[in-house]
Design a binder for these strands. Structure first.
Length: 574
RNA sequence: GCGCCCGUAGCUCAGUUGGAUAGAGCAGCGGACUUCUAAUCCGCAGGCCGCAGGUUCGAAUCCUGCCGGGCGUGCCA
């Protein structure tokens, strides 16, 4: 439709289509039509005032089929579509698509998404949540648009932290039947003792304890050498941690195709090392081997002074492995903004090596999340994810029993509380652009009113409720509708907003910004809620009821699908 | 010092890539449940878009310079 209008305007104005296409915009509100053309450019060509140009064009343009009228409004020329035809096309399409609204045909292209990536033997707190939530949403959105998505959890499963857990076990004994809390406790206790030893502030009772740092380092050397006892201990830690992480991911509905962490690339490092060394780009500087990427990116150490591999070495290995294994068009890294330089350097080194993986890497930076509790005051305590989810659940259940008056029959209140609590948190994390620093606020994250996930869940539940009651009176949203009954301003506002869905989805993917979808769903839900009481279905004349029901169900399909893409559980009844 | 990012209502954030009157939510105040769910809706109040220049028909948006905050700058990741 857009291109038809461009053609018609270009013909009437005697200007190239490309120039008109660059000017024609989607209107902001239906009152300004469906499309709008600012006439300032024309004014220059015609040497007349913009309003005069708009008026002249309005009289002369040959309206394509489907466009009901065009009206000059000051310097703008507004195009109004035939509302009945547009409503029929759009609402009919959304109803037919069901849960597949906005779904793209398979593109035959793969995208790798790396996200979450927590460190083994360390607690999972709210600071880790942002990468998890953004990455999960991006994976789902891209999959919906027809990409084959491979999600990867690049676990921090290789490093000196195991040395501290090991030292803790040596000093205080290895707990039987250990769980994640035991690992974290041992780690914290051992690293605390190490700090005291370094500072010379060891408590008298601990004076006889061995040098923790030396034990940890010694352990890690044995682990890297592949010594069986060290390896077995590492696997023990890994199993306990993975059980814990997977139970957490299950609870959040987050899924990974692969858990290929740093250890996975440990074995492949030798091959990569010879490739890097063979590339001839390595220079020596201050005893280390690296690549000089110029004044901005600096000298990047690829091998440390003692020859061991570094962070970037393993990321080179990972990028190469993923490119070879999956041949993706993109590799997305949902990693915090502080690591921007690292990823620029990674791309820089791969470019210098002439590797095709360089052009596929996309770093998706997100702003800082302190991960600090502000709830009880100025404590320095990190909020554990489990505690947050538990509290969300409890508050949602409490709110349901105290605030919600009318409740549908046969609702599983525990499942509902879980979905609402999780939805509130996920949506809170996705309702602002990636790059903004995130000030985690307990009360905002667990608020269920206003601009929140539960607000949208509630809108969907109300639509379902209407549909269920309407069905009992013999109405069927799939039964067709008289689209001319949706041409009024109040109903067409919803049609107008429904039309934006597809573009929003594509933009969210293209910009790697899930919040665009989140904000859109909020606006759509708000539009619906504002009309909930004025556009009644039950008790209306059947053709009117049928048309409104169809419109609401189309909105419901978009809300349900959109929430799912964000990882917010769509709640059908609440 | 250099580099990147952020600065919009008391607070948390939008603002469709330069277009029509800068919008939401929270907090505050006032209204609405014998009718499809009040986790809702309606109204009121709240603004030097950090500051100063520039670009142009038009700037919260682009350019320059300041101010304030965050992060990074061959330890590790």
């Amino acid at each position: 439709m857009r291109t038809e209008i461009v053609k018609a305007v270009a013909a009437a104005a005697g200007l190239p289509e490309a120039e008109i296409a660059g000017q024609l915009t989607d209107s902001r509100e239906p009152g300004h039509g469906d499309f709008a053309l600012p006439c300032f450019i024309l004014a220059r060509a015609w040497k007349q005032s913009p309003p005069a140009c708009a008026a002249k064009l309005a009289a002369e343009v040959a309206l394509p089929a489907g466009v009901a009228r065009c009206v000059a409004s000051g310097p703008y020329l507004n195009f109004f579509l035939d509302r009945a035809a547009e409503s029929l096309r759009l609402v009919g399409g959304l109803l037919a698509a069901g849960d597949g609204v906005g779904r793209g045909a398979p593109r035959g292209e793969r995208i790798v998404v790396e996200y979450s990536s927590p460190n083994i033997a360390k607690p999972f707190h709210v600071g880790h949540l942002r990468t998890t939530v953004i990455g999960h949403a991006l994976a789902r959105i891209h999959r919906h648009l027809g990409y084959e998505v491979i999600s990867i959890n690049h676990l921090g499963d290789w490093g000196t932290q195991f040395g501290f857990v090991w030292a803790g076990c040596e000093i205080w004994g290895k707990p039987a039947d250990a769980r994640i809390g035991d690992l974290v406790g041992l780690y914290q206790r051992a690293s605390g003792l190490r700090k005291d030893q370094d500072a010379g502030t060891v408590a008298p009772g601990d004076a006889d304890k061995p040098d923790v740092n030396a034990m940890a380092r010694d352990y890690f050397i044995r682990l890297e050498a592949g010594e069986p006892e060290a390896r077995a201990f590492w696997e023990w830690c890994l199993d306990i941690s993975l059980d814990y992480f997977k139970s957490m991911y299950d609870r959040m509905g987050v899924h990974f195709d692969h858990y290929t962490g740093e250890s996975f690339f440990q074995d492949r490092l030798a091959g990569v090392e010879s490739m890097i060394r063979g590339s001839g780009i390595l220079e020596e500087s201050r005893g280390a081997l690296g690549v000089d990427l110029g004044p901005r990116l600096g000298f990047v150490r690829v091998f440390a002074e003692d020859g061991r591999s570094l962070y970037i070495t393993r990321d080179i290995a990972a990028a190469e492995y993923r490119t070879e294994t999956y041949d993706p068009v993109r590799i997305l890294y949902v990693v915090g903004a502080p690591q921007q330089l690292h990823f620029q350097q990674l791309v820089g080194v791969l470019e210098r090596m002439g590797r095709p993986s360089a052009s596929r890497i996309v770093h998706i930076p997100y702003g800082h999340v302190p991960g600090i509790s502000t709830r009880g005051g100025a404590t320095d305590e990190k909020v554990l994810l489990n505690d947050l989810l538990d509290d969300a659940h409890a508050r949602a259940r409490e709110a349901y029993s105290s605030q919600v008056v009318k409740k549908p029959q046969d609702v599983d209140e525990e499942a509902l509380a879980e979905a609402v609590g999780l939805g509130a948190i996920f949506f809170d994390y996705l309702s602002r652009s990636n790059i903004k620093d995130f000030h985690f606020n307990w009360d905002d994250a667990l608020n269920f009113q206003g601009d929140t996930g539960p607000y949208i869940q509630y809108a969907l539940a109300r639509i379902n409720s209407i549909a269920a009651k309407a069905a009992a009176t013999g109405l069927d949203p799939a039964g067709g509708f008289d689209a001319s009954l949706l041409a009024g301003d109040d109903t067409y506002q919803l049609v107008f907003q429904l039309r934006r869905f597809e573009g929003i989805l594509q933009k969210a993917a293209a910009e790697y910004e899930p919040y665009l979808l989140a904000n859109y769903l909020l606006e759509l839900a708000r539009s619906f809620s504002a009309r909930y009481s004025s556009l009644r279905v039950l008790g209306e004349e059947p053709t009117v009821a049928q048309a409104r029901l169809s419109l609401f169900c189309a909105v419901g399909n978009v809300l349900r699908t959109g929430l799912g893409l964000l990882g917010v559980p769509p709640v059908e009844r609440m």
